[in-house]
């Protein structure tokens, strides 16, 4: 059970733009265990989607992975040819994009679109087998069989997103990446979708990477998590440990700024300032301008960034651990 399905080591990725290189992913290291759900939390522009795209090597044309390694079940993904990647993408990793529910082709029936994906990977299956498979998938995500013959515009947002999840599961992936799958949805529907994902994960023993800006969702969905800030992971570890004992100021700020409906009403603390531009060169700790308690080293930009183990399987950025 403790075997790692995915290991990412020192991954660096940048975008080449006309205003200069944007370092979106800096020295990212994490692993996901088999059957586990792993959360990636951070604000918009912190690089969490870039990480997801690098994992499936679907990054934009101007994105360049400069160094690092990604191993999926022992297989190195960086440097694979486009053909090899294609088989990895669905058999190995599948991804549910942010807003994927709007990516259905409007003139083809939902079932037909899923069947196409299955046919691509299991060319020997009969049509009947494929349809059986789709029915099975739909049952898993709580959709009725009749949806197979519907067009995307006949479905509600929640139903479309369920169908996306069914599609992601259609080729029996080992790892599913869910990138903000519920962002555009209402709370009640979000709740239903989250339940569905949890149920499917238990049922199939899937490994899951759940990406979100909402730390409350991460708290409910994941066993281990990583917090990203300005392209770096600043803290990672078991979710319960991080919530109980956050070691990085940014994690603490995130926890303190998330309102809740249960418990007593507490005063929330805001985090001043804005995340740094990823174009500029880094000087020391990128969080120091917003840190509530920076040391002299921090402020002068002498501190170095990098994760150290603060408790078992709980890593946090050096600089902030020193700050306290």
């Amino acid at each position: 059970m403790d075997e790692n399905i995915l290991e990412v080591k020192n991954l660096n990725m940048h975008y080449e733009t006309i205003s200069g290189d944007v370092a979106a992913v800096k020295d990212i290291t994490f692993h996901v265990k088999k059957g586990e759900s792993f959360g990636l939390v951070g604000e918009s522009g912190c690089g969490k989607t870039s990480v997801a795209m690098s994992l499936v090597q679907l990054q934009a044309d101007n994105a360049k992975i400069s160094s690092g390694s990604i191993t999926l079940d022992g297989q190195e993904l960086i440097g694979l040819s486009e053909n090899e990647l294609r088989s990895v993408r669905w058999d190995g990793i599948s991804i549910v994009f942010q807003g994927a529910m709007n990516a259905w082709n409007p003139v083809i029936k939902i079932g037909e679109q899923i069947r196409e994906a299955i046919r691509e990977h299991y060319p020997n299956n009969t049509k009947l087998q494929n349809i059986e498979k789709i029915k099975e998938l739909f049952e898993m995500v709580g959709l009725s069989e009749t949806i197979i013959d519907r067009f995307p515009h006949e479905l509600s947002g929640g139903m479309k997103q369920r169908a996306v999840i069914a599609l992601a599961l259609s080729c029996n992936p080992k790892l599913v990446i869910a990138d903000e799958p519920t962002t555009a949805l209402d709370v009640v529907i979000q709740d239903q979708i989250l339940n569905e994902i949890k149920k499917v994960q238990d049922l199939l023993g899937l490994s899951l990477i759940y990406i979100s800006h909402d730390i409350a969702v991460i708290a409910e969905m994941t066993e281990r998590m990583a917090v990203m800030y300005a392209g770096r992971i600043v803290e990672s570890g078991p979710t319960k440990d991080i919530f109980a004992n956050p070691r990085h100021s940014y994690t603490r700020a995130l926890l303190e700024s998330t309102p809740s409906v249960v418990g007593d009403k507490v005063k929330l603390n805001s985090l001043d300032g804005e995340p740094p531009s990823l174009i500029d060169e880094e000087f020391g700790c990128s969080f120091s301008p917003r840190c509530s308690n920076p040391t002299e080293n921090c402020k002068s930009g002498k501190s170095e960034m990098g994760l150290i183990e603060v408790a078992e399987d709980h890593f946090a950025d050096k600089c902030c651990v020193e700050c306290g």
């Binding site: 709370v187 979000q190 909402d214 730390i215 409350a216 409910e220 319960k240 809740s260 409906v261």
Partner: peptide, 11 residues
Amino acid sequence: LISSIPVPDPT
């Protein structure tokens, strides 16, 4: 509605 809202507490 109230019971649908995720709670930022893993426990």
